[in-house]
């Protein structure tokens, strides 16, 4: 596994900082329920960035990709089916 140059890590950090600034400032604008979707979207983007570059998922085996996705997928199963109950009460 070739070790990537420090510049790549710094670029990732800058991207994360920019995303943080965006989500923070957008929260001052009232977009109604769109606020939540936007905030979650940016959070997911930041999480993927961290996983790809800082946690070296990029270029690692397909198995690790699946394990990384499995945790989130199972959480979505829990969230969706429970909300399925609360929304249809």
């Amino acid at each position: 596994m070739t070790t990537s140059p420090p510049k790549l890590y710094w670029k990732t950090f800058v991207a994360l900082a920019v995303l943080l600034a965006i989500t923070w400032s957008v929260s001052y604008v009232d977009l109604g329920s769109f606020n939540l979707i936007f905030a979650l979207g940016i959070a997911v983007a930041k999480a993927i960035l961290i996983m790809l570059f800082f946690m070296h998922i990029r270029g690692s085996s397909r198995l690790l990709h699946f394990v990384a996705a499995a945790g989130v997928l199972w959480l979505l199963i829990l969230l969706s089916l429970v909300l399925g109950d609360y929304m249809t009460r």
Binding site: I77, L81, G84, D85, Y86, T88, R89
Partner: peptide, 16 residues
């Protein structure tokens, strides 16, 4: 994805 069958009469929504 099946755990709700423990809660059919627990005031869980009938559609769930």
């Amino acid at each position: 994805v099946v755990w709700g069958h423990h809660m059919f009469v627990s005031s869980q929504s009938i559609y769930a």
